[in-house]
């Protein structure tokens, strides 16, 4: 099964890790990649919106079933070096999907990973860490503390 390959192949796992950051980025955060990517990047696949059927599992752990569709926009670009990048993101934002493909292409190309990390990915990671910490703290504040009433004569 191809799905396990990202778990066993460190290259694919690292590429997937970048995609995970990109998938959580805003359109504005991703648009910064345009300053980094060569203007000669060509569209292998012009941004296209379609549907992915989201699946769940019966009882959370059982056999799969179709929960409902989600809009997804995908794009593919090729850099002058020949590096090809893909973007697949929830929603209908075409620019965001193409920017995601540019990030992937730059990461695959490999020569500017430091700049990519410093200028694009690191700020997104920092913002996400803050968001997650805030959400966890807000959620934790609503956790019920039960008082234990001690009964009897101890």
């Amino acid at each position: 099964m191809t799905g396990t390959s990202a778990e066993t192949d460190p290259h694919k796992a690292a590429r997937r890790d970048v995609m995970t950051v990109v998938a959580a980025a805003t359109a504005q955060e991703l648009s910064r990649v345009r300053a980094l990517a060569p203007a000669e990047a060509v569209d292998l696949r012009a941004p296209e919106t379609g549907l992915v059927m989201v699946r769940g599992r019966m009882g959370g752990t059982g056999a799969p079933f179709n929960l409902g569709e989600a809009t997804v926009t995908r794009a593919a670009v090729r850099l002058p070096s020949g590096a090809v990048g893909f973007g697949h993101l929830l929603g209908r934002d075409r620019h965001r999907a193409r920017d995601a493909a540019l990030v992937d292409a730059l990461w695959v190309e490999g020569t500017r990973r430091d700049a990519l990390e410093a200028e694009i990915l690191a700020p997104i990671r920092r913002r996400l860490e803050g968001d997650h910490a805030r959400l966890e703290a807000e959620t934790a504040a609503t956790r019920v503390d039960f008082f234990t009433l001690v009964r009897g004569d101890d």
Binding site: T2, G3, S5, A6, D9, K12, R15, R16, M19, T20, A23, A24, V52, V54, G56, L67, A70, V72, R74, A76, F86, H88, L89, L90, G91
Partner: peptide, 20 residues
């Protein structure tokens, strides 16, 4: 997280997160 097995990549691509 929603993962999508993109045939051109050969691994499950993260599409983003949804609330359920």
């Amino acid at each position: 997280e929603v993962d999508f097995e993109a045939p051109e990549l050969g691994f499950a691509v993260p599409l983003g997160a949804i609330t359920v």
